[in-house]
Design a protein around this nucleic acid. Sequence first.
RNA 1: GUCCCAGUAGCUCAGCAGGAUAGAGCAACAGUUUCCUAAACUGUAGGUCGGGGGUUCGAAUCCCUCCUGGGACGCCA
Length: 561
Amino acid sequence: MNFKHDLVECLYPALNGQLERKQIVKMIEKPKFEQQGDMAFPCFELAKIYRKSPNDIALAIVEKINSPIFEKVEAVGGYVNVFLNRKDVSSKVVKEVLLQKEQYGNLNLGKNEVITIDFSSPNIAKPFSMGHLRSTVIGHSLALIAEKYGYSPIRINHLGDWGTQFGKLIVAYKMWGDEKKLKEAPIKELLTLYVKFHEEAEKTPELNDEGRAWFKRLENGDEEARHLWEWFRDESLKEFTKIYDLLGIHFDSYHGEAFYNDKMERVVQMIEDRGLLEESQGAMVVQLSAEELPPCLITKKDGTTLYATRDLAAALYRKENYHFTESLYVVGHEQSLHFKQLFAVLKKMGFPWHEGMAHVPFGMILKDGKKMSTRKGKVVLLEEVLEEAIQLAREDILKKNPNLVAKEEVAHQVGVGAIIFHDLKNFRLNDIEFSLEDMLRFEGETGPYVQYTHARAASLLRKGNYQEDKERMIGDKEAWPIITALMSLPDVIKRSYEQYDPSQIAKFLLDLSKAFNKYYASVRILDDSEQKQARLSLVYSVKIVLKEGLRLLGMAAPEEM
RNA sequence: GUCCCAGUAGCUCAGCAGGAUAGAGCAACAGUUUCCUAAACUGUAGGUCGGGGGUUCGAAUCCCUCCUGGGACGCCA
């Protein structure tokens, strides 16, 4: 179903070898307006070669093209505009979707090779905030898209369960903590302690040293420290699991930073063996001046490790255990420098596989134009936002479809879907100003809009008593925008993986939904007994693709809503 | 100060391996339901594509420069 290929085969001989097939492929474009056809070939560049006007060249090319798949070929303003035979193409596309069902759009490009995706990775003892939502939702979708692309993804939740923060937290707990309070509302109490610590440390900076000292005790296996740490960790994980269940996300590994404690010595040794480790101001570093990067800190002056060390150990562990061809890190854009350094060190260590590693950055969620800071207690809790969205969906269902049976299930699907889609529809790197109002919007370019379109299609199939029939195909002119959208899915999958960009899927779903709703408004699908089944075939193919697209974003597709 | 991202309609954003008339959604205004779910559809209005140079037959898209916002720059992650 690659009609571009057909066009290339017509153009290549028509140009007498002036251009390679590859060049022609690159030049073919999609016209902006429907009256300009389905594909276009610009002749401006050829004007120099032939010393003729672009339009004369276009006219000459038109003369030489002759293919049954093209209904009309015309020269307009220096372009060769090609119109596909819509009836034939429509039949082919719908038939293809019905044959392949949810497999439609599957690509074989990943060759089943393993890729690891490090995402979500919340910090223990801190609430799951809106900020973590981005990594979670983008990473989850990327894993699904990778599968569709043909890869075999390993989902890794690299929990932030180690680091000086725990020393600080232990200090805070010992000074102001209350066991009873902590047991009642662990995360809330831990956050209070964390915020208080940073407030106090502003006045008494020595507290920071105490925090570092306690962290060193933790790293050395001190029993009291260890015990507190385990307690904090367990309580936090319980909270996170609630959120993941709500979002329908699972991981293949929860190995966090602490998991690499006993694997760091080896890494430090490896760096040293290669002669890369240097002392600098009391700390041990790898110099990266040749790469025009600041040095990468490996150990602090007190001998304890840093996150870079753990990330190095993790990278090695993942390569040795999963044998990945690509390794992705879905982490905020503010850590770009860290990943550049990390990859540079791996390169210096002589690991050619550093080339398969990539940081997938994303913009921040801002409050009043500024970064939200846990330290100052300025966080918005994800769980609360999700609950509000679900509540709003409940209310809408009562208003709009009070007879719906699975009210609670659908309210969850729609509420959560709205939040996920709101996050994924825009380009990753854009910062997002936190706005509950925007997230809770269910009309226009939103998740619920796409889900609603799917439910509409499902309803038609039920009411129309659809019998699957791959041979009876529509001839409606109004259906063409739907066909072109359906046709584009494989390309969209390819682009969205290669650019690590789920928003392409979201935009595709909006296009398809808009095309379908327009069709729905202008064609009475169930009225014409003659064409009903053929039209329902189109409806069914739309339903299949919408559902699959929503799945790739991590969203459910309710049959009714 | 250095480096990284972003600047398109009142707001939120698409478009950016250069191409034909710069598009959506929201908000505003005007319509569509005896009819398949109105979470929908139709129409009106709204733009010096941050400014200035350059490359090109052609620039929102590529290059340079400046301005604005955000972020990162050694013992947090």
